[in-house]
Design a protein around this nucleic acid. Sequence first.
DNA 1: TGTACATCAGTGAACGCGCGTTCACTGATGTAC
DNA 2: TGTACATCAGTGAACGCGCGTTCACTGATGTAC
Lengths: 269, 269
Amino acid sequence: MTIMTATEPNWRTARERARAEITSEILDAGRRHLATDGASGLSLRAIARELGMASSAVYRYVASRDELLTQLIMDAYNSLGAATEEREAAVDRADLRGRWTAACSAVRDWAFANPNEYALVYGSPVPGYVAPPDTVGPASRVANVLVLILIDNAERRPDAAVLGTAQTDPGVSPTSHASPTGHSSPTALAAPAAAAAWRTALEPLRSVIPAVVPDSAIQDGLMTWAGLFGVISLELFGQFHNVVGENPGDREAFFAECVTRWAAQLDLP
Amino acid sequence: MTIMTATEPNWRTARERARAEITSEILDAGRRHLATDGASGLSLRAIARELGMASSAVYRYVASRDELLTQLIMDAYNSLGAATEEREAAVDRADLRGRWTAACSAVRDWAFANPNEYALVYGSPVPGYVAPPDTVGPASRVANVLVLILIDNAERRPDAAVLGTAQTDPGVSPTSHASPTGHSSPTALAAPAAAAAWRTALEPLRSVIPAVVPDSAIQDGLMTWAGLFGVISLELFGQFHNVVGENPGDREAFFAECVTRWAAQLDLP
DNA sequence: TGTACATCAGTGAACGCGCGTTCACTGATGTAC
DNA sequence: TGTACATCAGTGAACGCGCGTTCACTGATGTAC
């Protein structure tokens, strides 16, 4: 069973090597079960059965069902995060639109390659399960990539920052960088003081993003972020039936057009 | 138990009245169970227990667990659809922006009032469950409301249609009605023939929408539709932590700003 | 209005299944001398 | 290099639980004459 090789010299003992191997086999089996039965159908007994071991043996590797679930969630976030970072990093730093496109399609590709892990983290929450704080870091890797693009874009023409910050320009709700129609929000006209409420709402993100990025760009960033995951979720969860074509290439073409328009909304060059 | 009143004269017998009453009690209990245990935790035995009847008695009202689930899904779609239609119908027909705002906030309000039913229909699909075709109609009620707004908006200035239809304007990807930056999509520059792919992808929706509405407006409509459900899902499923503020009014203010900007993207007056 | 029969709601026991988790135990692997 | 002891992987039985669904049965409600 345990093959003695010198190819992995950093493993101390055969026992540890075997342990790592079986642990990852358990995680793999868990991922496979996620596919057929969903998160709430994840069963330690079924995994044990699949690996040909007694159900009690799994407890040598995993403390409980919930711990396995947490592990799978973290892995999913990290896998998606790594895929996105990698694809985005391959693009020339100055090509903001290219970076945006790379990141978006990396997310979509990952989601369709791993639909159940996507559903696990971006679908309905597992009832009765509460995510431990360890998941926060991995969960924000995709967002981080997108935020960096926003920052680089703002630094490209830093004048926009002065126009956009709450201090210098309160109460006005710029509908979009790109709107020539010049609608001002009805709320802004009726109650100038309350119109800054959306800026206040952005505080948590605002506090971790440099001042070059105007509030309005943060708002736009969040909206495209929501659009990205909205499009992917609707498609993956079956809401595109009779809406977007199902012929080869249709879904991809629709998504590509979304990415293009999001880029325009973000004013990426 | 059964109170004899003449207030519902259309009920033929006491038996039928009781039957309808208990059926709806079962559905209510099902909805309550959805809340605590999620769709995959929905249990006929638990419902029977809650109603104080033998587990086998539920089968007088419901053929199987899957049938109950289907019923709950249809009810959810209909409830959301009715809420949206009602709120939107209360707005002056000419006030397109008001109608859009009413529809959007109706969806959000309903989602937060019925988080589990929302998750049931817009969250991860229930593993092993396939929705019967009866659900298609109710499922599209929200979309219908939004589409009608798009149509009325296009009819407001029908010239846009000529500019936007595939026949007269193929290959060019207008990033937005409202974009003054004038980026043309890189795809369009590289391969004009393939650039119309996104138009082809819109065919299913295209075929049920009058020609006054240009392809580009359909694309924008789909993107805001995805943005709407994306924002609601991300918020409801807990992805706004450390992103959008959690003080009273923050989430609402953020959403209101989203609605305003979506309206601008759709070029609503 | 009264009786005979049909319909239907509800019962309780049972079948066969799967689950998470614990526990005392065996036997192999690793470590200290 | 060899032995004695500690560590750890894996076993199999058990506990107590919940589930969907079926079935023969009782008793109440409705209907036709």
